[in-house]
Design a protein around this nucleic acid. Sequence first.
DNA 1: TCCATAATATGACCGTCAGTCATTAAAAGA
DNA 2: TCTTTTAATGACTGACGGTCATATTATGGA
Lengths: 218, 218
Amino acid sequence: MVKIMATTDRKEREKEQRKNAIIDAAEKLFFFRGFDNVSMEELAKEVELGKGTLYLYFKNKDALFFAIILRKMDELHEIFRECADLKVSGREKSKLMGKRYFEFVHENKEYYQMVCTNGPKLFRKLENEELHTFMEHMKEDLLLHHGVFREGMADGTVRNDINPLELAFFMALMSNSIVCLDPGWKIMLEAEGISYHQFVKDFLLFIGNAIEKRPDVD
Amino acid sequence: MVKIMATTDRKEREKEQRKNAIIDAAEKLFFFRGFDNVSMEELAKEVELGKGTLYLYFKNKDALFFAIILRKMDELHEIFRECADLKVSGREKSKLMGKRYFEFVHENKEYYQMVCTNGPKLFRKLENEELHTFMEHMKEDLLLHHGVFREGMADGTVRNDINPLELAFFMALMSNSIVCLDPGWKIMLEAEGISYHQFVKDFLLFIGNAIEKRPDVD
DNA sequence: TCCATAATATGACCGTCAGTCATTAAAAGA
DNA sequence: TCTTTTAATGACTGACGGTCATATTATGGA
């Protein structure tokens, strides 16, 4: 009986490893060739498995996309947690989190390209259980930011006339919208003589300015 | 010869009419059943044409999506132009445009659902000529807003320490991000006790606040 | 009125791909 | 070694976007 349990454990581990190997391969292919342009057949070949086998590990192609997302979210969350643990003002933490976030985006260009392109459609298809998992992950980040804003309001570095939780939502929303900026918009910007880089900088300034505590003018 | 010309004209008109009839049918089906869940076969049946015929009027399924978008953009632009023509302050115009925009979104829920779901992917696939057409349309709106902000800066109702064109971009970007808010986010908000309606109101306040001219604090 | 030609319409057909399932192979335990 | 459970497979299915050879209809002149 003990032997059986041990075997079960090992199998469990092996299964987890294989799952990760599949995600690795999926990232590699999806990032550089596009989610739609990679067939399950091709992915199976990459991991040296039969196509049918993939479906033993993932319900369908979308679930694979989702698994990639969750793994990256964990990675990013780790970064945010580091920032939140620093011993600086709330506003400083928030600023740093923004900085680290945009660095992360830069280091994971292909990932974000995939998410911006395919995310909107796929997120709207998530099943209940998946949606729940996803929300749990989002919530972790959100609460971190929430906490940071509360600190900022307490130490007087962030304006305190807004619900800090909503503020966390605003920030997430706006950051997201810059990261996922349509290529068409980028072209328009350039055509109007504003570089994307400049635009991002100005937008961040605009936002930062909007959340900082202002000198009281009563 | 004259007769030939007249015939050509009539044919041109008929072609245009038929094109519009197809777009009408496509809207009807795409809006209520989802872009992906409507096959070209089905759409052809709806307009009482053969499937192949559709391809005489539209290059492919994406082009149909695009045609729907352009038609709606014109509709919205008309509304914005009305607002811009009013005889009120720049800030008032901007506020009104925001109001009318969100009303428009509300009246076209199904349209926006389609765009938010399928737009991101399809916009990234636009061919050069289509991209150009699209940008022309966007530009029209953008310049309208740009003008309004400049007026606002001139009449002292809008803060004047930002490039007004960039400000127009910011506003478009942020409005868009609220309209296309992921359903997952909506659920999270509700779970945290914030209704979507409340959230939108607060966000608009937050933004409005960020663009208004502040009492000079030098 | 009739015919030749051009314009328009059609649906069977093709290639592709996600997902399934009957079958085979491997591993575990007795 | 033999039986049973678990894992792996790839041929197959159904659906769909897009094409093209063929058919239908309209046009303008004789």
